[in-house]
Amino acid sequence: MAEKLGTGAENTWCPGCGNFGILNTMKNVVEKLEEDDIGREKLLISAGIGCHAKIFDYLNLSGLYSIHGREIATIQGMKFANPDLKVIGFGGDGDAYGEGLSHLIFAAKRNADITMIVHNNSSYSLTTGQMSPTSEKGYKGPSTPEGSIEEPLNPLMVMLSAGASFVSRGYAGKIEHLTDLIVEAVEHEGFSLVDVLQPCVVFHDDQYQKYNQAVEILKEPAETKYEAMELTEKTEKLPIGVFYKEDKPVYHEEIYPDLNVVEDKINKDERREQIEEILKEKA
């Protein structure tokens, strides 16, 4: 099965790129979801623009290759239109935490039933390594030759503040752990974020080494949102796993508890009768 998940498209990531770990993880994820009766025909993917997004071409799954930061809105559209589908968005850190941050915050706020996987490599790599929202202070890139003067964003803190019902972090170097994490995120009813530490071998030095030493697996989610927030502030050790999880009403079900506007589409005659009613009421 796993082979069929490739498309045959030429892979153009740099050798050793952390994105390979995420691609391999996704192939495992699809198989595991199928074991849980979520067939791949029901999966839709989207991606933004950047190195991360090439995963769209490499995974033989249906979807829409979106634009920078907008994949978060794209997958919400897919989900609202047909809630029977499971939707997964791939974003980069520039993409989801920069250009598309407002979409991410509001998707969390409304608890849209989507999964966002953010390939967080702390640089704009495809555009030659400029600083990104999560680059460390002092990061040197072509737009910040003297080093970034901005503090990095703490995206998990932002997500917790926005009311995200599933907030997690994984590591592209720990495929088994990341597989289970993404499966759990996809199966979570409501908004889920998986921030993935994704080493960039060109614009950062030794990120694999750093992450291999720093990551520590969380045994279970924090009990409260505030404890989860504290976890996101850790920098010496980097917790990976589910930081926070809660059950909340899901956006599309709050609009229509039982109606799928595509699958249960109103028929032509019924719609027209409704319109005739509206016309008559005013006549």
Partner: peptide
């Protein structure tokens, strides 16, 4: 973008 996403599974938007 929600609109474009919604057309992909067939919603008239």
């Amino acid at each position: 973008n929600i609109a474009v996403g919604a057309t992909m599974p067939g919603a008239r938007v």
